[in-house]
């Protein structure tokens, strides 16, 4: 049995957000079941598939493998942030253009892993793209489009000189 719920404040996509969680509640479940931030998905239940990928303090993490209470005071970015600004982050249209999705359930995690990769490696090689997405699994088999999408988004980001897009710099 848990000790019950406590209210904490999480900084999600630049916004201080109050949420009641148990100590055992994961960051993913806090977002999905308590805040209705449902872009990140729960799939494997144990940090292997990447469908719940978020970016915390600039680092890609699996939302299912970190507790909500451990993320107080950290900058949490979820996929919702990529379309919060006037223009979406280029990775979003790149996924759509390249048909890099089918059922779409792995897609938010793939997109966030790609965004994380591009943050770290703005000019990735094809091999770096393949390796950089190694922590994310897709069942429909959309990798061909995904690999193209990441390269296209990288090109777009370079062309725009790393122009800011998406929402707040969470």
């Amino acid at each position: 049995m848990g000790p019950g719920e406590t209210e904490i404040t999480l900084t999600i996509n630049g916004k201080a957000t109050k949420v009641k969680v148990e100590t055992r509640t994961t960051l993913l479940d806090a977002c999905r079941e308590r805040l209705e931030i449902t872009g990140a998905k729960r799939v494997c239940d144990r940090g292997t598939c990447g469908a719940c990928t978020m970016i915390v303090n600039g680092k890609t993490v699996y939302g299912c493998t970190t507790l909500a209470v451990d993320n107080v005071g950290k900058k949490i970015e979820t996929i919702e942030n990529l379309t919060a600004g006037a223009k979406p982050h280029p990775i979003v249209p790149a996924f759509s253009n390249n048909d890099a999705l089918q059922c779409g359930y792995c897609t938010p995690g793939m997109v966030m892993a790609s965004k994380g990769l591009l943050d770290r490696t703005p000019n990735p090689t094809y091999d770096q793209v393949k390796a950089g997405l190694g922590g994310n699994l897709c069942r429909c088999g959309t990798y061909v489009g995904i690999r193209k999408a990441v390269l296209e988004a990288a090109k777009e980001l370079r062309a725009s000189g790393g122009r800011k897009s998406g929402g707040s710099n969470a």
Binding site: T38, I79, E80, L82, F95, S96, D99, L101, T107, V111
Partner: peptide, 21 residues
């Protein structure tokens, strides 16, 4: 033609029933 729900899915906005509350 690019699929009609491509942007919605790529942006994490597509609502699956497991997202419905």
């Amino acid at each position: 033609i690019t699929r009609l729900d491509g942007m919605e899915k790529a942006a994490g906005k597509a609502k699956y029933n497991s997202d419905v509350r």
